[in-house]
Amino acid sequence: MRFQAILLLPLLGLSSARLEPNYTSSSGVSIFNPSDFFDPTGPWSLMSQAGDTLYIAGMRGIYPSNSTLAPVGLPRIRQAFQNMATLAEMVGADLNACVRLVVYTTDMYRYRPMCNDVQIELWGADANKYPPRTIIEVDRLNQDDILEVEGTFYVPRAGLCG
């Protein structure tokens, strides 16, 4: 629980900021790449919004302040989840608005327990509050990373900026 409070402190200041989409398609899909976050490592965007649904791309444990990776293991996994939470907060959502998580890891045996620990830190010990999650072991991730987490969030249109 201590980690949750520490994690959310910097997010509180972001809640009043207005995040504008970088692009909105003719069908109303908004694409977001916040300028104060790290740049995507390829031809993709950090998040998109269609109607009341926010989609956050697979987040890695990259520090937004300098675009470097956190140390391997628990710090990197925490940072990946923190990146997802920060992006959701930028459009007015919180972790309780998460409707689905997908986690990709290169070593289920080693990193799944750490992923579980981070989720308990973020969502608390009440298993009834955990969003559905799929965790998949893969051979390789971008830049030989250890884990990515992507999230889908429900954010009523009135609550979204953009």
Rank of each mutant, 00 (worst) to 15 (best):
R2C: 06
A5C: 03
I6E: 11
P10D: 13
S15N: 07
A17T: 14
P21R: 09
P21W: 11
N22P: 05
Y23N: 10
S25P: 06
S25F: 07
S25I: 03
S26I: 05
G28N: 05
S30K: 14
I31R: 03
N33H: 02
S35K: 08
F37L: 03
F38L: 05
F38E: 07
F38R: 04
P40D: 01
P40R: 00
P40T: 02
T41Y: 04
W44E: 03
L46C: 07
M47D: 02
M47L: 07
M47S: 03
Q49A: 14
Q49M: 06
D52S: 10
T53D: 09
T53N: 11
L54V: 15
I56D: 01
A57I: 04
M59I: 02
M59E: 09
R60F: 04
I62R: 07
S67P: 00
S67E: 12
T68N: 07
T68G: 00
L69I: 03
A70M: 02
L74T: 08
P75D: 10
P75A: 07
P75Y: 06
R76V: 04
Q79Y: 04
F81T: 08
N83M: 10
M84I: 10
A85E: 13
T86P: 02
T86A: 13
L87C: 08
E89K: 13
E89L: 09
M90V: 00
V91F: 06
A93R: 02
D94P: 00
C98T: 09
C98S: 06
R100P: 00
L101P: 07
V103S: 07
V103D: 05
R110I: 07
R112H: 12
M114H: 10
C115M: 08
N116Y: 14
D117T: 13
Q119G: 10
L122R: 12
G124V: 08
A125N: 10
A125G: 03
A125Y: 13
D126Y: 05
D126E: 11
A127H: 07
K129C: 08
K129V: 09
Y130V: 03
P132K: 10
P132H: 07
I135R: 00
I135G: 01
E137D: 10
E137F: 07
V138Y: 11
L141P: 08
Q143H: 13
D144R: 12
I146K: 00
E148Y: 03
V149S: 02
V149C: 10
T152K: 10
T152F: 09
Y154M: 08
Y154N: 06
P156K: 14
A158M: 13
L160D: 04
L160C: 14
L160S: 15
C161L: 15
G162V: 14
